[in-house]
Computed example of a mutant assay.
Amino acid sequence: MENLRRDWPKRHALTPEEVAVVLGRNSNSRGVLQKIREGMKSGRYPGARKIDGHWQLPLEDLAEILDPTPETVMVPVVAKAGRRRSQVGPRIRFVINARFFAQVCDSIGYAQGAQALRNDAWTVREELRQEDYARRAERSKMSLVEALAGLGHTKDD
């Protein structure tokens, strides 16, 4: 900000031509000036205003563009690269545990709880089977498509 005030004394805002000079771009280039005007219009240069039909950018806002004040940045948490955990394992473990606790419930005389656990285990087991069938069908489909694509190309082509 100090440099801007020193270089542009008694000025509160700069024109697109002057902004180009500050940004180190060729202020004689029509394309550069057009991009700066478009940036002022679109909001890429925050604080820019059109006064009496001419775009102007306040010195404070230009200083913020040149040297932004540090602010708290939220860094996204990225999962570790490596082996992806299966979604199948926990569900298989649920089926096994549900069957075990169904036997426990039977042993202590809680038949209704045992039947509910068996039903839940059966539902999860069937979902796993359907997913497995779908995966197998997709693999089979892909291998057939690849085989058919291979038949279309011969050495004579």
Rank of each mutant, 00 (worst) to 15 (best):
R5F: 12
R85A: 12
P46I: 06
R37H: 02
T69I: 08
R91D: 15
R118M: 13
I92T: 07
V32Y: 05
G47W: 01
L57T: 02
K155Q: 11
D7W: 10
P68W: 00
K35T: 05
E138D: 07
P46N: 03
K10Y: 14
V104H: 13
I96D: 04
L148K: 15
R91K: 15
D157C: 02
S27N: 08
A98I: 05
E18C: 03
P68M: 13
G152W: 01
M40T: 01
E131P: 03
H12R: 09
E138R: 11
Y110G: 04
V88W: 11
A116W: 10
E18L: 04
E64R: 15
A81L: 15
K141T: 06
G89W: 15
M142W: 09
L4G: 08
R30I: 11
A13Y: 00
A13D: 11
D67W: 06
R49S: 00
G82V: 08
R135E: 06
E38I: 02
D157G: 03
E131S: 04
R30F: 06
G39P: 02
N26P: 09
E131R: 00
V88D: 15
G39Y: 02
R5T: 12
V145D: 15
S140F: 08
P58I: 10
P90I: 14
G39H: 02
R118A: 14
R11V: 02
G150W: 05
